[in-house]
Structures are given as C-alpha cells and as structure tokens.
C-alpha cells in the first residue's frame, strides 16, 4: 500500500549490519590487552569496565555452550514483535547461553527444535540463521543456538 517504509527506526542501516558482522557471524567479542578481561558484546572503541584500558584485541568465543535459561514466547506473551520480526510470529525461544569462558550471551535464541525439547543446562552450539532485513532490502544473518545432538 505504501511504497516507503512506515517506520524508519525499525530498520537498521546496512552500515550497522556491516559493523556488527563479526559478532553475528563468528561470535567475536573483545579481550582487554591490559587486564585480560573478556567482554561480550565487542567493546571495540569502548573502555574496559575493569581496568579502564582502551586497548582491546578481538576474541572469538566458543561456539558451544550451555543453555542457562530459556523462555518460549508461545508460553505466555502474545505481543506485537519488533519491526522486522513479524515473520517469526510467536514461535521464538528466548535464551541466555553460558560459554566455557564464563561469559553469558543473551538475550539470544534457540532454533531448530521444539520448545518442549529445550531444557536448561543442555549443551547448545552456535548456528547461523536468517535474521532480519537491512535498509537496502538484503537479508542479514546472525548467530542463534541449537541443541548439540549426541
């Protein structure tokens, strides 16, 4: 009906998607060069909250971890999704994942399994899945998590 997007703020610019590409595709965070503290998300351009150093190096976090807590959306909340996430309906499974480095990733999502199969404490691995559209119309992709099959 309308050729132009109704909500400008709902669609992130392609340049932002590009800036975050290493986080989304490889789980790339930061390690403080001064005190060694690991940080997620990346603190590139920021300051270490532990020692105030501004010097970081990239750190690729483990792609496997443990499901710390989860919440399947269909369990309770039927709410309008954020702009750009309508295609996922009410089937998303929200989660926080604990990595072997002691860092938590979350909020994040569990995919490729039924909600009833999701249990806190289960081993999960990172997968790359279709995410949301960029402002130029391209689809972008991001990390999500799926159970590790024995």
């Amino acid at each position: 009906m309308f050729p132009e997007p109704l909500y400008r703020h709902g669609v992130y610019r392609t340049t932002k998607q590009w800036r975050h590409r290493k986080e989304r595709y490889r789980l790339m965070g930061s390690r403080c060069k001064n005190c060694g503290q690991l940080w997620w998300p990346s603190r590139e351009g920021k300051v270490c909250g532990k020692c105030c150093s501004r010097s970081f190096e990239e750190y690729e976090f483990s792609h496997e971890g443990e499901l710390f807590v989860n919440f399947p959306e269909e369990k309770r909340y039927m709410i309008p999704p954020l702009q750009g996430f309508e295609v996922y309906g009410d089937t998303r499974i929200y989660a926080m994942v604990k990595l072997p480095e002691g860092i938590y990733i979350g909020p994040t999502e569990i995919v490729d399994c039924k909600p009833e199969q999701v249990k806190n404490g289960m081993k999960v691995k990172m997968v790359t899945r279709k995410f949301r559209r960029e402002s130029n119309g391209n689809w972008s992709y991001s990390f999500m998590w799926t159970p590790v099959s024995d």
């Binding site: 992130y12 919440f71 959306e73 909340y77 954020l82 998303r92 929200y94 909020p107 991001s142």
Partner: peptide, 15 residues
C-alpha cells in the same frame, strides 16, 4: 538490534 524487547527480556528474568 537483535530483535528483543523489554517484555521478552523480563520473561527471561522471570524464569
């Protein structure tokens, strides 16, 4: 950016 809003985060806290 990752598509999560306040209520969904609250739900995780609730769990």
């Amino acid at each position: 950016y990752m598509g999560f809003d306040h209520i969904q985060l609250q739900a995780l806290l609730q769990e």
